[in-house]
Design a protein around this nucleic acid. Structure first.
Lengths: 383, 383
DNA sequence: CTACTTACGAAGGAGCGCTTCATTAGTAGC
DNA sequence: GCTACTAATGAAGCGCTCCTTCGTAAGTAG
């Protein structure tokens, strides 16, 4: 059962203040009249609320826009720049970071290469460099950090420990959330990278507007992220989406069809192998086409399982192989048409390599909004 | 983006009135002081709110409880009896109905047998009789009906049309929601029966308290219901949970292992066949045990797929075969342990045949609560 | 019958949002 | 450069909702 607390007049003021913040965050700078109209409050009341928000630091006045009829109107904006969020993508070969304002508008991005086998300390140092780089690029300091959200490959516990990571051996067993909390003295959130990518696609990418989305990370390793009712679905033990563990879903060995194809030149690095096959298939090479067919056959089984279970509005194809989405989408759709009850839209990722960091930013922004808008205590000064 | 409307003092009163209703619904009759303490309002304000609620008919005063120290306190209760909800389970062989008060407390139940091949009109008449029976048993009339929620076998559209029903041939293509709206001049909700059963198990049954639940209907036909974040998950096209359509999940033909077992006497009705096999297995008959093993082998594949995708807290086994849960649970758990990342609890349904009607009642009650507590308009008189 | 406990009811006060209206600071037209 | 027009501003006054306080009422316990 939800909240049982009633409220007095200050609660009403709190609600109206939050409504005003929401209105300002949704649209750029607004005049007092526009704000009053949107919130349904009268002008004098809106003024009172705005004055208080300015006082507390959540909102500031901006110069009136010239060239309008009548007396120039005060304009207000949400001070999205008075704090920042950082999203981190901890991958095998790279640590990426992005810094955004409190609205999730991205202000800086960095990338730090790391070797997959690098020891723990080295990777943590890379994280530190990536974040420091973002802070420097955007002229901020660590004190401006409100929330850090990190996505990493591997299986996590709900508390942010790494149960197992094939891509980053040193990661296995690590209390990642704990380590990052030592590094950053702010709110720290940990999530699986595919789930964050899924969130990014649902918010800014190919699946914008969809409430239920299945994101497929297709690459050397298979991964998934589920968005259900607009939110990341983790599951009770943060293990949702691990369909790759089911042999009958035929996902685990699926990439081998592409990696092991005979069109791949002898001595190619394992991470580049599939690219050759996909490129050859695009050129119509029959052996490569057959390999892609076998790959998609397998890919479609696990995908159909997820689609049948969840009936999502959309399936988004991301990850390394999705650069060859033109080769993969049509046959995948064809397979899914055969088994799926209701065929979802199937699209390629539109966000590319920055997918995970953007998802991390969105995750942090969601968390912030939830904290702000569901709080029961009156609005406090903005740090 | 959520609600952008601010509110004035009447909004505050509305919130406090709703909080009071919530408090009263959560606990039996409460004195004014108890109510004030729970809601955090002062006594005089609480009195004002209570007076208004009594005025509008949502709440009534009950005689003070005797034998207490001090002056006897006024007591109030939510008038859960001033309206009623009806849940209907439209199955192949039976139409069941249950009637509850507005809190979902069940007051009457009825059952009307129907032949699976019965024509449309006959089944609709059975529905009418089942509901009329409940009304008569509880001394209500159709005018007291607030919401009717119906669960039926088959695949539905989001709007409540039946796309296809193997168990009820006459159902296929029917605008069920439309038909029921003609019969009942109140709110009508339609949902798949397994989903409602899942809801009932999550609210009152084996999975009480769990937010993420996979419900398996095991019987002559396989079905599933998913509870995600405490709510029924339908999917974008109301087709969620149809893993039975995936050949690799090995569900479709799974019941055949039990139905076609050689321990089943010649000439047994198809709906009774599996019962023989399960009973023989319980007695240790080796042929039956082998059949059950093969059955569970298949059952576990589709189940593991759902568990891996969703990572639910609990899996509940319901439907006809779940009467033999003692024979099925242990081997099912054993199979799941092998493939599942994180093993969920696996339990047998505790609600039995009334599962679907109870779920329908819960579904209707949820709908009512959502309407009541998320409304933006001030509280209206209770009809 | 008295003391004690608990609830009731009335009075007075503070905070919040609303409406109203005179005032102010711009643009547009002559 | 002056006047008319437009739209926002700021101050005043009202009503509603919740709060605190305090004397009174209706029970039980001894």
């Amino acid at each position: 059962m939800a909240n049982l607390r009633g409220g007095d007049l200050s609660r009403l003021r709190q609600l109206n203040s939050l409504t005003a913040i929401r209105a300002l965050r949704g649209a750029g700078p607004l005049t007092l009249s526009a704000l009053a109209e949107r919130t349904g409050l009268s002008r004098p009341s809106m003024k009172e609320v705005a004055d208080e928000l300015v006082e507390l630091g959540w909102v500031e006045e901006v110069p009136p826009s010239p060239g309008t009829m009548g007396r120039p109107a005060r304009r207000y904006r949400f001070r999205a720049d008075s704090g920042c969020l950082v999203g981190i993508d901890i991958g095998g070969h790279n640590v990426r970071a992005a810094l955004s304002d409190l609205d999730g508008e991205i202000l800086a991005e960095t990338r730090q290469p790391v070797l997959p086998g690098a020891p723990l300390e080295e990777r943590l140092a890379a994280i530190d460099r990536a974040v420091s780089g973002c802070l420097a690029l955007s002229g901020r300091t660590a004190a401006d950090l409100w929330t850090v959200a990190a996505g990493t490959t591997g299986v996590l516990t709900p508390e942010g420990r790494v149960t197992f990571s094939a891509a980053i051996p040193a990661w296995t067993g690590l209390d990642l959330a704990g380590k990052l909390r030592e590094m950053f003295s702010c709110q720290v959130l940990i999530e699986n990278d595919s789930r964050l990518a899924a969130l990014a696609e649902a918010r800014r990418g190919a699946a914008q507007g969809a409430r239920d989305v299945v994101f497929l990370h297709v690459g050397r390793r298979m991964g998934t992220g589920l968005i259900i009712d607009g939110k990341v679905h983790r599951g009770f033990g943060a293990a949702a989406g691990e369909i790759v563990m089911l042999p009958e879903a035929r996902w685990y060995d699926a990439p081998e069809h592409l990696n092991g194809c005979e069109v791949v030149p002898e001595g190619t690095a394992p991470e580049d192998a599939a690219g050759y096959t996909l490129a050859a298939a695009r050129d119509g090479h029959p052996v490569a086409l057959a390999a892609v067919d076998r790959y998609v056959d397998d890919l479609a089984v696990g995908t159909a399982a997820m689609v049948l279970v969840l009936d999502p509005q959309m399936v988004v194809l991301g990850g390394g192989f999705s650069r060859s989405a033109d080769v993969l989408l049509a046959p995948l759709r064809e397979r899914l048409e055969r088994t799926c009850m209701r065929m979802p839209e199937v699209r390629a990722s539109t966000l590319g390599d920055e997918c995970v960091v953007m998802g991390a930013i969105d995750y942090a922004a969601d968390h912030l909004s939830r904290e702000l808008f569901t709080s029961d205590s009156p609005l406090t000064p903005m740090r």
